[in-house]
């Protein structure tokens, strides 16, 4: 239980850092760290397949997308960023306080929920569920990936046309 708590706290801290830091690149690293911690949580709860996907796709692929967008759009000099930092601090300093307060307040509340009893022995293997019960979702995944491909084609071709 204690290791789990440490990982969860680290996850929240990484997310907090991602939203507080001034440099966008650092925020991306914070996001990747959050993903990595989430993957550890998933792994220790027994969701191995989802953990692997989270680690490779969210911590990996999405960070790559972020970094490339940041490098394509970087215009600020370091001086601008320092100037910008003051304004950001004014908007962001209450966040850790609020989060700490919410965390403490919630930990004193007694859980009011009722939960369905767990299935004895679980509900089988994820691969069976995914391929035999959730085929419709897989079909949806294919569709949304196709939509994404068309989006990339639209945006990317536009970029290269502009360079000429």
């Amino acid at each position: 239980m204690t290791i789990m708590t440490i990982v969860l706290v680290l996850m929240v801290l990484a997310a907090l850092w991602a939203s507080m830091t001034t440099l966008l690149l650092r925020a991306t690293i914070g996001l990747a760290l959050t993903s990595a911690m989430l993957a550890v949580v998933m792994f220790s709860l027994g969701a191995t397949l989802a953990a692997i996907l989270e680690l490779s796709v969210c911590a990996g692929l999405i960070s790559v997308v972020f970094v490339s967008v940041i490098s394509l759009t970087q215009t600020k000099t370091f001086k601008d960023i320092l100037q910008h930092r003051k304004g950001r601090l004014a908007r962001f300093w209450p966040l850790p306080v609020v989060m700490l307060g919410a965390g403490i307040a919630l930990s004193f509340v007694h859980s009011p929920v009722q939960i369905a009893l767990p299935l004895p022995g679980g509900d089988g293997d994820v691969r069976t569920v995914l391929w035999n019960l959730r085929q419709l979702d897989l079909f949806g995944q294919i569709l949304i990936l196709l939509a994404g491909v068309f989006g990339v084609m639209v945006f990317f071709k536009r970029e290269s046309k502009d360079d000429n």
Binding site: L49, A50, E54, V57, L119, G122, D123, V126, L130, R134
Partner: peptide, 22 residues
């Protein structure tokens, strides 16, 4: 995890991750 439907939840999370990327 808590309701003992880990396989279902994993299947959903995999779909969510794919959609998130797009």
């Amino acid at each position: 995890y808590l309701s003992g439907r880990m396989a279902l939840a994993q299947a959903m999370v995999i779909t969510v991750i794919v959609i998130e990327v797009v």
